[in-house]
Amino acid sequence: MAMTLSAPLRRRATTALLLVPLAAYIIFLAFPLLWLTSTSFKRPNEILVLRPTVIPKAPTLDNYREVLGPEGVVRASLNTMKVAVASAVLALAIALPAAYALARKQSRLNKAIIGWILVSQSFPSILIIVPLFLILARFSLANSHLGLIMVYVVWSLPFVLWILHGFVKGLPNELEEAAAVDGASFPQILFRILMPLLLPGLATTLLYAFVNAWNEFFFALVVLKDPQLMTVQVSLSRFRGLEGLARWGPLAAGSVIATLPAMAAFAFLQRRLVSGLLSGGLKN
């Protein structure tokens, strides 16, 4: 006679079965970070070996000492944080009203505008960098963080706008109409009714714009010439060498430090993202 499982046991077994691939996926995702952290504590003679180990045999802080030195990644990280936060917030501030207008105000131009937004994503950075730099130089914005922020805003704006447009379009018009019937003004509708429902979208796009700016290399390399203004990606490239070689230890240590703010941003915004989703579903 075949053995039958009770319903709670069956549920637990199903959950366990679902958790196994999830755990495997998390390990798969976490492994590069683990390897990076491990390398950051190794000396060169432990890195360039045929069978490297995950746990360093003779851990060292030398790599961290080097990257945290006077020309290290801390200042570069702070520079990047400033540029990434400012460009993400600005992009969002510009994109939100634009997305609202595109989603709510019907016009024959809308489709063309959305199309253009998508097409503009396909331009390679090398194509636009020279005219962009000349424009920045004309306004004395080359070699400045403000100039780089402008570039990043322009660079991430189309995608941010496109994503937000989808979010706004997904909200039913009836919500605004009901609020208007109840006597709410337009700013009240926007900030009290729509904003809480848009929080997941805002968090997603903010995160996108932030990470985009945080990881960007080429524009920063070209726009910023003063070593004091360098961003973290440009700063880390100093450890890259020739023919596949690099100074792996300092590169890993710098990368670990550079990863922390992005991880913190994810952790912070993830909470907001979840709370935004929940608040959208609650009836006050």
Partner: peptide, 15 residues
């Protein structure tokens, strides 16, 4: 770095 110098110099010359 060696990987970026060519684009760096080309854009520098152009600008």
């Amino acid at each position: 770095d060696w990987g970026a110098i060519h684009d760096y110099m080309l854009t520098s010359f152009q600008t």
